[in-house]
Every structure is written in structure tokens, then in C-alpha cells.
Write a protein that binds this DNA or RNA. Structure first.
Lengths: 224, 224, 224, 224
DNA sequence: CATGAATGAGTCTTCATTCAT
DNA sequence: AATGAATGAAGACTCATTCAT
């Protein structure tokens, strides 16, 4: 845990140590949860799809629930570390950092659509309180980090004083998430039916990058 | 089917006739689906919560799946009619219509958070193809209507020529959706813990209204 | 009830009076029971197929069970009357009567395959005691009538003294039954795949007629 | 698969491997299906009667339907092997083989009345196409084997040239089946009410043996 | 006389989890 | 450390029947 964590009062999160077998199962489970939902996926489905014994899921993770928790830690801890590195980077200007953060978020969501579908699912459904707590914890970390960056920009008078950071991030994550969800509709409405999925992803990444940067400029009140 | 439907080639959607008993059950089911997810809610849960016999759910709707379909028609058909009325209204200017559409969308989502949670759930989970088809049908209708409005604004040279309508709407729906999902986090991060839910909703409506109108201006390139 | 009934001690059977509506329902139910079995057919199936209200089935027949009982009376009472007439007929010789009985049985089973499938079902399944009782009653009547005919033939020294009437009838009914059941297999094995159903029925009637008459001769020991 | 199979083009049938637990359940299910019909027997009935957990039925067989399929394979595969052995046996004469086949069929049906009731049920009800396919497959095998035997007898000029094999077998199986179905009626009509079931079975076996052999002689046109 | 609405009991099947090995 | 066998609980759904009108 680096210094900025201490300053920002980020609580550490206990994460189960994952072997290769764990991650192999997690990555298969990710595809199934994204496709059929957490409740719509049975432990047997996961075991079959991952090619492991049914009882091994519980043996390795304790329960279906805890498997999901492990999945969130597995994906979100990496994101947090990356975020810390970018923000702590002394060689990048404020605006460079903002644009990198936007592009990295877009890339991450478009490249890991499965996980982000699951993340979205978990938040839209209020049921599992433990999962919601984990997500909130990570979101708190992310938001504090971004807030510290914004404040830095404000102190340097690069951007407006009044910025609702949560709303700003909400716009970004909401738009990107919605694009993933609407991908098939976008394809259909704009007559891209024959475009390969990979190409459509790249197209959307570019569109989103321009679009969100424009929105950020508008909200943050800066001109390059 | 009114004239604008014919011009825009909106396919009519067959909707089960709903009695008061139907809507009574639907509205209870809505709360449960939003809270626990479709797969996480049992038909027995719905029956108990709606105070009706278990077998009546199937008697009235045919199946759990068809109940969900009925719910989508019930909510989304009304939205479509409202949309048609606003766009067809001759007494409103282009910009008035845009702002009304934004505000009505924000109000609808914030006031019917349960239904919109279910709508997002259904889209994030790829499983139920019939439901996805119904949603796509309505989204197609909405988007065609908005497109016709945008084109009208473009013809009158009020806004930019190049506008990706789907991306524009995605920004709006994505942001509003994410705000609903993040409501508790927003409350916590901004120290509004004691603010009543109703007040927070109103606060968010105002913030969102200003925010999205600003984003639309930025994207559509207009100044009032 | 005619004289022979009294002599043979045939108990009368109380039969529900059937209106046209009753028989209309019965005949539709017959097709369904034959196709899907009694337990495999729901009262709703019958109501839908007969184009009547669901509650009307119980209203008209009392219960699903009693509908089946009515069906047996409806079909079997007619058979008994026909049997009595043939046997009582003074203008026919003994052998003529035997051959008519064989041919009529074959025709009846081949023409009313649905009902006879239900009759076999009911006998093969031991469950419904009331139905079994009704069937036994009719079979007793049939067998006594045939027995009286056989005795007549024996007295006239036209046929062998030692004849197991039940076994003789069992051979006939068993063979004809099995032919109905095996019809599709017969068609396939003998490469009659394109023969229309009606033609196959006629072919089988002829084959069975010759076949069973030959078997009867062999068992009863007569030569024409 | 032995040589005669290859010559006769008998398709092999894939059969689930059965443990002792499988057969234990199957044999209990057999009694219940015979007594109450397939549709009239619940999986719970079977579980209770076999003394196993309800969920184990599906665990072991996959479904109620597949349990029935397993039962047919279990019983009919054994019959086919026995048939092959008899027909391939070089130490038996043609007529010896015919008589053994008759007697073995009678014994099998009278000793396994439950299974044959179920076999009959399945054929009388047209519903379950998969089961009908399995039965047809086995019947095809049996009939081809018997046909080869008949041809052998015809080549050796021991029997008539024109014999409808399917009709011949239909007479045998139909008669024997009908005897099983009519057993109680036979008992009653011939005043054997106090005869133990075992004794009645033996009586019927003897009667049937003589009877069917006589019928076969008559049809096949041979004198020993 | 006829029926739409309603229901308690029952159907088959699947579930996540456990446990002896 | 890993797993095949097993299970109690719960799942969605269908059933024959009833009853107020």
C-alpha cells in the first residue's frame, strides 16, 4: 500500500489468495454470469464449463456467493492499482492524466464486457448486501483517488471550481456501460450488421473516447 | 396507430389486455424483481406479496416469463405514447421539446426506479431472448421518434449536422441509470446520509436536468 | 332386456342418459385419451378440443373419471346389443354366425381404433377399479353370449367338445388388438410406407379375417 | 455384436450402464408403472417405494422419461440376446427352435407381467415418441431374427412358402398379452377364484403353450 | 343452465451444499 | 487435496375441481 492510500484513508480489503485453478474457474464463471445472470447460472454450469468437479467449486471458494466476491476482488483490485499508478505518475500533466483515465476506462469496459455486465447486474439488484459492500468499498477508493486529482487540477486553476465528481464519474461509467448494453441495438440501428464484433468494439472505443472527452471538457470547463 | 407511426414505420405491438388484478400483481412483482432480480424472485414470493393465490399468477399471466413481458408492455407502451405526443406537439419549439424530453426521462426514471432497474437487468443479462426482442422493439420506436425530431432541428439549422443519435441517447439513459444505481453511494460520498429519500431524488433530478442539458448542448452544438 | 338376457343372467347396467352435447364431448375426449392416455390428458385439453367451457366437463359428467365411465357405456352397450341380435338371429347358421362375429369384431376394432386403445389402456392399468368393474361386466355379458353360441354348436356336433371359450376369444381380441398397435410397424416392416391409412386398414381387415377364421377352425375343429 | 447381427443389419442400441442401485429402482418402478400407469405414477411414489431420496431418481436417470427408457433397454436387450442364442444354436432342429421360442415367450410374459403391461401401455398410448422409437428398434431386431429362422425353414421345405411373419408374431404376442390382461376375468369366468396366482400362471402357461403351438402349426402348415 | 374466476394439492425438476472417502 | 454420491429445500408450473353468479 503506497503513501497516497494512507493520505486518502483507503481501507485495505482482504483478498483470498488465488491459485491458477481459482482464476481458471473465475474466468469461466464470468462468461456464464454475464450471459445468464448470477441467479440464472448454477454451480453445476460453472463446473461443467470450467471442466472441474462440481464439489470443487465449493471446495475452492466456499460457496457460490464467495466465488462472486472473489471475482470482484480479482477484477477490481487490479483496477485500483492501475488508478493509483496513473494518478501518482509525476511525468504526466493533469490533462494527460484525465485523458488516460478516460481511455483506460473505456478500454477496460469494452475489453472486459463480461465482468462489467456482472458489476452492473450486482448493483441493479439490491439483494446481495455483502457484494454491494465490496463494490462500494472499491468505488469509494476510485472516487477518492479521482477526487484528489480533480482537486489538484482545481488548485492549479486548470478547471472549474464547482465540479460534482460523483456526477462526473457517473456520466462516464453510465455512458460506457450503456454503450456495452446497447451494442447490438447500435449495430442494428446504424446498419452495421455485418461488421465483426472486434471492429465494432474499436469503432465504439473511438467514438466514446471523443465523446466523453468532449463531455468532460464541457463539465470541467477547460479548453486544451 | 397515428400518422407519425406510419411515416416512421413503427410496428404495432400486441399487448395483453390488463385488468385491475393484472396491474395489482404487476406492481407488486415490480418491487420484488427490482429488489431481488427476476431469477432471484420466486412466483411464490410474488403471490404472497401481492396477496393472491400462487396458482393465480400462472392463471393470469401464463408463466413467470410472460408476467415479465406483460410488465414491459405495461410500462413501455405508455412511454411511447407520451413520446409521440410531445414530438407531434405543434405549439412547442424544437429546443422546448428537447428539454421536455430530457426532464420527462429523468422524472420517469427517478420516479419509477423499480421498473428501470428491471429494464437494465434484462438488458445486462442476455438470457431471455423474447424479453430482449420486446425491449429492442420499443427502443427502436423511441429512437426513430427522437431521430425524426433531431432531423427536424438539423433541417432548421438549429443544431449540428453530424449527430450520433444512439450515442446521444445512450449518454442520457446511461447517466440517469447510473445515478439511480449510485444513489446510495452518492448520498454517502457527499455526506447526505440524513437527507430523506424524496429530497435526494429531487436534488438528483435538478442536478441531472442541468447536467444533461449542458451535455446535450455540447454535443448538439447549440446555444440557447 | 330380451329373453336370452334373462336366461344368461346378464345384469343390467345403469347408463347415464346422453344428450348430443355429451356425445360430442365424449368423441373428442376419445381421440385425446387414445393419443395421450387418460392420465396424460387434462380436462382442459378436452374442453379446448371439444370447444366447450372447462367447467362444463364436470357440470355434464361430474368428474373426469365419470366421463370415462360414460364413454365405456356409450361404446360397449351398443356392442352388446349387436351381439345379442346376431346370436338370436334364426336365419343364420352356426358357422355364419361365427364368421359374422369375427368380421364384426375386426371391423369394429379397426374402425374405432381410438376407443379400443382406451379399452386396452384401462385393462393394462390396474388403477381405476370402477372402470375395471364396468369392463368386466360387459366382458362377462359378451362371453356368456358367445358361450351360449358355442354350446349350441357343440350340441349340434358341429365343433369339438373341449373348447376354452375365454382362450378362444382372447386369441381373437389379442390378435386384433396387437395388429392395431403394430400397424405402423407392420407398415414399415413390409414396405407399405406410402400406402394410405385407409387402404392399410382394409388390407389388415382382410388378412385378419382369413387368419382368425383359420385359427378358429383349427381350435374348434371344424371344416366348412 | 455377433455375426448374425451383421448379416441381419441389426443396429446396436446404446444402453446406459446400470449399477445395482439403478436396477433396484427400476424394478420397483416397474411394479408401480404396471399398477398405476406411467402418468399415474409420480416420481415421489417411485422414490418412496424404492426407499431412496426423491432427488435421486433424477440424479440416477436424468428424468422420469429416461428412467422409462432405461427400463425398456434393461428388459428388451436381454430378450434380444436370448433370441440370438437360440436361433444361432446349431444343435437344435427348426421345429425345436420354434417351440422353444414360443415357450420362452410365454414364460417371459407370464413371469414378467409387470414389464409387459408397461410395454403394452407404451404402445397403446401414442404420446412418447422416443419410447416408441426404442420399442420399434427392438421389435425390428426380434422380427428380423425370427424372419431369418422362418426363411431357413422354408428353404428346407419344412413349412409353407407364404407366411406373414409379422402377423404370425402378432398372433402370439397379442394372445399372450391378452391372457395376462384377462387373467382375473379368466379366473372368475372359469370359477378358479381360490386358485393361487402361481398355480393359475402355470395353468395358463400350459394352455397357452399347447394353444399357440397348434395355431403356429395351422398357420405354418406343418405336421410334426 | 352455464361459466369465468379461483384454488389447494400435486407435478417434475433443479438447486447449492455436504460428506465419506 | 479432491471428488462421486447423495439430499433437503425450493423451483415453476399444472391439475381436477369448486363456486358465485
Amino acid at each position: 500500500m503506497n503513501n497516497s492510500n494512507k493520505r486518502l484513508n483507503l481501507r485495505p480489503i482482504n483478498i483470498m489468495v488465488l491459485t491458477e485453478k481459482h482464476t481458471q474457474i473465475l474466468e469461466k464463471a464470468e462468461l456464464l454470469f454475464a450471459e445468464k445472470g448470477f441467479d440464472g447460472t448454477s454451480v453445476r454450469d460453472i463446473a461443467d464449463y470450467a471442466g472441474v468437479n462440481l464439489a470443487m467449486i465449493n471446495y475452492y471458494f466456499g460457496s457460490k456467493e464467495k466465488l462472486l466476491e472473489a471475482m470482484f476482488h480479482y477484477r477490481m483490485a487490479a483496477t485500483r492499482e492501475r488508478l493509483e499508478d496513473i494518478i501518482a505518475n509525476k511525468t504526466l500533466s493533469f490533462f494527460q492524466k484525465v485523458e488516460i483515465l478516460i481511455d483506460e476506462h473505456i478500454n477496460k469496459v469494452l475489453n472486459k464486457q463480461c465482468f462489467f455486465r456482472i458489476l452492473f447486474q450486482a448493483q441493479v439488484i439490491n439483494k446481495n448486501k455483502q457484494i454491494l459492500k465490496i463494490i462500494r468499498e472499491y468505488k469509494l477508493g476510485y472516487t477518492k483517488l479521482i477526487s484528489s486529482l480533480i482537486e489538484e487540477g482545481q488548485k492549479a486553476k486548470l478547471i472549474r471550481k464547482e465540479i460534482d465528481v460523483v456526477l462526473l464519474l457517473t456520466t462516464m461509467t453510465g455512458t460506457v456501460t450503456q454503450v456495452v448494453i446497447n451494442k447490438d441495438f447500435y449495430r442494428e440501428f446504424n446498419n452495421h450488421k455485418k461488421m465483426p464484433d472486434q471492429a465494432l468494439n474499436e469503432l465504439l472505443k473511438n467514438k466514446l473516447s471523443t465523446h466523453i472527452k468532449q463531455v468532460f471538457k464541457s463539465i470541467m470547463g477547460y479548453e486544451e
